[in-house]
Amino acid sequence: MTARSAARARLGLLALLLVTNCVAQAEVGVRELPGQSGDGPVTVFYPTDAPAQTKVLGPFTLQVAWGAAPTRGNGRLVVLSHGSGGSPWVYADFAIQLAQAGFVVALPEHQGDNWHDHALVGPRSWERRPLEVSRAIDVVGADPRFAPLLKLDRVGMWGMSAGGHTALVLAGGRWSPAALRDHCEAHIADDFPTCVGTSLELHGNWADGLKKAGALFVIRRKLDDTRWYGHTDPRIAAIVAEVPLAVDFDLASLAHPVVPLGLVRNGKDAWLKPAYHVDQVLKACASCTLVVDAPNAGHGSLMSPQPPDLHGPEVRLLADPPDFDRAQVPQAHARITQYFVQYLLPKS
């Protein structure tokens, strides 16, 4: 057994114990804090003594204590970075599980790349996102309700998809828009959703050539920036990148992450194909831990609750593959939670 597989086995055993015990954990409160420097709001999940009530948020229904006073948990903060076009609520089950384990959990809304604003989707958002994570730490740390309950010297950070890109940056990776351009020029047919998103879809007919040519024309005009971008935060002590967008990274910069880096791999991800993204990070990073390997999961399979209003290409790219068992979702969340317990909490 390799060191990586042994670590996965230990995490798996601990995670199964954790998911069994979470049922008896404390209630979870939720509140929104205003962001800094023009950022969107920061949604915070946290332990509380107040009883849960039904809270309806658009199409989502949660059992939480909205606006309740926080109680002391384990003293650690975990920041979650949503995927492109995302909202806090598709990660609510994961955030609740983290809060039940004692963490305060902050979800910043990334400006220009969220459920109601798509103005900055892509590299313009990717430049901002790591800084928005740092400012979210500042926001929670400055709030008089949470500041006395937290020590911010060992913060956890998790991100999914574009949020996974953010996670890789905060782990010490550097990326370039031109590297994405080069990838798309080489792999436009095989990795079309990475390069185009949901705006176009290939159907194996005569129009595909025009779509690829048009996409490359736009990509070459927009992705001509050859600079490398990066940002780290000394307060962050452990990171998990779930199905990260990774083709625009200098993989050598991820060979030795600045903090422990865990990865989540969804084997049937049709949006960010593992062979081009997470698998390349795993090859480059000998010290990384594969925290979750879900061979039958699609790109969005670990989101919970799932977005209810998928349409068009989003259905194929985000909906569960037919053979995916959603009983794996809380188990995956438990493994990630245990990863943060392992690296953020003092050893007893």
Results as ranks from 00 to 15, higher is better:
Asp320Ile: 13
Gly230Ser: 13
Gly73Cys: 12
Leu62Lys: 15
Ala213Asp: 12
Lys212Asn: 13
Met303Arg: 13
Pro260Thr: 05
Val243Pro: 01
Tyr229Thr: 00
Leu11Asn: 06
Leu120Tyr: 08
Ala215Lys: 05
Ala106Asn: 06
Gln25Glu: 14
Val259Leu: 00
Ala189Ile: 04
Val133Ser: 02
Leu131Glu: 10
Asp113Tyr: 12
Tyr229Asp: 00
Thr337Met: 13
His311Met: 13
Ile188Ala: 14
Val64Phe: 04
Ala68Cys: 08
Gln306Arg: 07
Ala252His: 09
Ala101Val: 04
Gln280Leu: 12
Thr2Asn: 10
Leu170Val: 06
Thr2Phe: 06
Val315Cys: 12
Val19Tyr: 10
Arg181Ile: 10
Leu345Phe: 02
Val155Asp: 01
Leu210Gly: 14
Arg227Glu: 12
Ala167Ile: 00
His187Asn: 14
Phe192Asn: 09
Gln63Ser: 15
Leu317Cys: 07
Gly40Thr: 07
Tyr229Ser: 00
Asp325Gln: 05
Asp138Ile: 03
Val243Arg: 02
Leu263Ala: 10
Val169Met: 07
Ser5Arg: 08
Ala9Met: 07
Ala7Gly: 01
Leu344Gln: 10
Gly262Asp: 07
Ala286Arg: 01
Ser176Glu: 08
Glu127Leu: 11
Asp39Thr: 09
Val292Ile: 02
Ser304Arg: 05
Ala162Val: 12
Glu201Thr: 15
Pro88Arg: 10
Val79Arg: 05
Ala237Ile: 12
Ala52Asp: 10
Val292Leu: 03
Gly58Met: 06
Phe103Cys: 01
Gly204Ala: 11
Trp89Cys: 11
Ala286Cys: 02
Ala237Arg: 13
Thr61Gly: 09
Gln306Leu: 08
Val292Phe: 00
Gln328Thr: 02
Thr61Asp: 08
Ser81Asn: 09
Ala332Thr: 01
Asp248Arg: 06
Leu254Phe: 05
Phe45Tyr: 15
Ile239Arg: 01
Asp293Ala: 13
Pro257His: 02
Lys273Val: 11
Lys283Pro: 00
Arg154Gly: 07
Lys211Gly: 05
Trp228Arg: 14
Trp271Ser: 13
Leu80Val: 15
His231Ser: 07
Asp269Arg: 04
Gly197Lys: 01
Arg4Asp: 05
Val291Ala: 07
Gly262Ala: 05
Trp66Arg: 14
Thr43Lys: 10
